[in-house]
Nucleic acid binder design. Structure first.
Lengths: 196, 196
DNA sequence: GTCTATATCTGGATAGAC
DNA sequence: GTCTATCCAGATATAGAC
């Protein structure tokens, strides 16, 4: 890894952990093991360094979670895949949801990193299935927001959850693991066509 | 309103809008219309000013959303009340969810303001109903997390939602209003006992 | 490309007059 | 209680030698 790559890796870690405001150019340089002036040499300023990282990251994230939606499997299977993949991704990057929320609420310009097509087409597909009567009649936008909300909740609320449920060491991870299955069951219940 | 009250009101607004780090003692004093030195006279330092506000706020919030849980109505009605009350509260304070998430992830000590009893007893009650077979067999903690996740999602993700769905002016508020009913329907579907 | 030293700015907090 | 002036720490960014 050359210096530029070292800086990118270190900056990602520190920005995600501390947020844009909380991150220090000093901390990043120490983490990367390079001189602080190098950060400015390669990336001019803090804001630009920040953008570079998350343009790269989001270009792999969205294709991954939406991949299976193109297959010819049932919508129930597609939702199962989405929930599994999304939850797995979050479990290996548990700070991402809070990071994204904090960043984009403070710096609305940050949402540019969200590519439009992936989410739009997933929602459109769900709406078609609903309109065709294959699943319950629902607003696909509301449904999609609900699924994502259910998936990210434990990650954004971890401190409260630990406080309220006073969990033992490791218990939180168990909750996450069980949650995948539980959310999939909830989604199936929501999608199920009501009896007349 | 005396100076102390003016400061509290101004500080609440600025802290919620800008976060703890982003808030400036200068900005707060201007907003309150008092001299900056007054902030230190009444509240010593920034951290203490911050705590005072949210101890007061949370002491009204939790009793409100959990009030109806003590009645003798059905669990479905209780959940409807919870979702309505909670969503209404958020609609009049739409920045609160992001604020809480950002603050408590950065300053874990902040969770002390969350009183334990209210949420715990709501969850315990739901678990009893489930174990008794009055609703579907489920993990009440997972269920409760799901409901809260569904309610707060549009508030924490507003910038993405506007970006992805490219909404017209006022369309977001319509989504919020419709969401109350939609989430209530989803919750009913989740709670419904499965046929053998 | 890499480093040291430093300029410059910002913001919380304090001293002290009134 | 209220104000002005100021201190001081911390952080970004730059200048300039090598």
């Amino acid at each position: 890894m050359n210096n530029k790559e070292k800086i990118l890796a270190a900056a990602e870690k520190i920005f995600v952990r501390d947020g844009f405001d909380g991150a220090r150019m000093n901390t990043i340089s120490k983490e990367a093991g390079v001189n602080k002036a190098m950060l400015h040499y390669y990336f001019n300023d803090k804001g630009n360094l920040f953008e570079q990282i998350f343009k790269i990251k989001s270009s792999v994230f969205f294709p991954k979670i939406s991949a299976y939606f193109l297959s010819d499997s049932s919508i129930q299977d597609k939702m199962d895949y989405f929930i599994d993949t999304y939850m797995e991704l979050l479990m290996t990057n548990p700070s991402i949801p809070s990071f994204v929320i904090c960043t984009m609420n403070k710096y609305p310009g940050f949402i540019r990193v969200f590519p439009r097509g992936f989410l739009e087409s997933m929602i459109a597909y769900i709406q078609l299935e609903s309109d065709a009567g294959k699943i319950r009649k629902l607003d696909a936008r509301q449904f999609f927001m609900s699924v994502v909300g259910m998936c990210i909740f434990p990650f954004i609320a971890k401190p409260v959850i630990n406080h309220i449920m006073n969990l033992e060491k490791g218990a939180f991870d168990t909750i996450l693991e069980e949650r995948k299955e539980e959310v999939k069951r909830y989604v199936k219940a929501i999608l199920k066509v009501e009896e007349a």
